[in-house]
Amino acid sequence: MATAELALALPAVILVLALCLTGLTLAVDQIRCEDAARVAARAASRGEPGPLVRELALSRAPQRSAVTVSTGEGTVLVVVEAPARDRHLRALPAAVARAEAVLEPGVTP
């Protein structure tokens, strides 16, 4: 009887573990996107060139991330978006982070 209970419970435990690991992966990707957006926004606010800002963001963001840098009146906005890693669960949301910084004095957009 214990063998039958174990045979029924083991797949459920494995499924719960898989869901927990997927959630952890999504959380790590979100944190990496936020870090990448902050670093890129800081660099852009200092007046670093666009390709360097993009490279800084991509070096910290998850693989296959998209980085958008836009400047407005006195501010710079960086958006980093990383698709979900798990290709089997298409319903998972992408990790998206935005960071805005004020341009430092003397920096022109």
Rank of each mutant, 00 (worst) to 15 (best):
M1W: 05
A2T: 03
A2H: 07
T3A: 04
A4K: 09
E5R: 05
L6D: 11
L6R: 15
A7M: 03
A9Q: 13
A9T: 14
L10Y: 15
L10H: 07
P11Y: 10
P11M: 09
A12Y: 08
V13P: 08
I14R: 11
I14H: 06
V16M: 15
L17S: 05
A18K: 10
L19I: 15
C20A: 11
L21E: 03
T22R: 08
G23N: 07
L24T: 02
L24A: 11
T25H: 08
L26M: 09
L26A: 11
A27F: 08
A27C: 04
A27P: 02
V28M: 13
V28D: 15
D29W: 10
D29P: 09
D29N: 12
Q30F: 02
I31F: 10
I31S: 07
R32I: 00
C33I: 00
E34I: 00
E34D: 11
A36S: 12
A36N: 15
A36G: 06
A37G: 02
A37F: 03
R38M: 03
A41N: 02
S45V: 01
R46A: 00
R46C: 02
R46G: 00
G47K: 01
G47D: 13
G50C: 04
P51F: 13
L52A: 15
L52W: 07
V53P: 14
R54S: 12
E55D: 10
L56M: 11
A57R: 07
A57H: 11
A57E: 08
S59K: 13
S59R: 15
R60L: 13
A61P: 00
A61L: 05
A61M: 06
P62R: 03
Q63F: 07
Q63H: 06
Q63A: 06
R64T: 04
S65C: 02
A66M: 10
V67E: 05
V67Y: 03
V67F: 03
V67I: 07
V67Q: 09
T68W: 04
V69F: 05
V69T: 11
G72H: 11
L77M: 07
V78Y: 08
V78M: 09
E81W: 01
E81L: 00
R85L: 09
R87T: 14
H88R: 14
L89R: 15
R90G: 04
R90H: 15
A91P: 04
L92N: 06
L92Y: 12
L92E: 10
P93G: 12
P93H: 12
V96S: 03
V96M: 08
V96P: 02
V96Y: 07
A97H: 07
A97V: 00
R98M: 01
A99E: 06
A99G: 00
A101L: 09
A101C: 06
V102A: 00
E104H: 00
T108L: 13
T108P: 06
P109L: 03
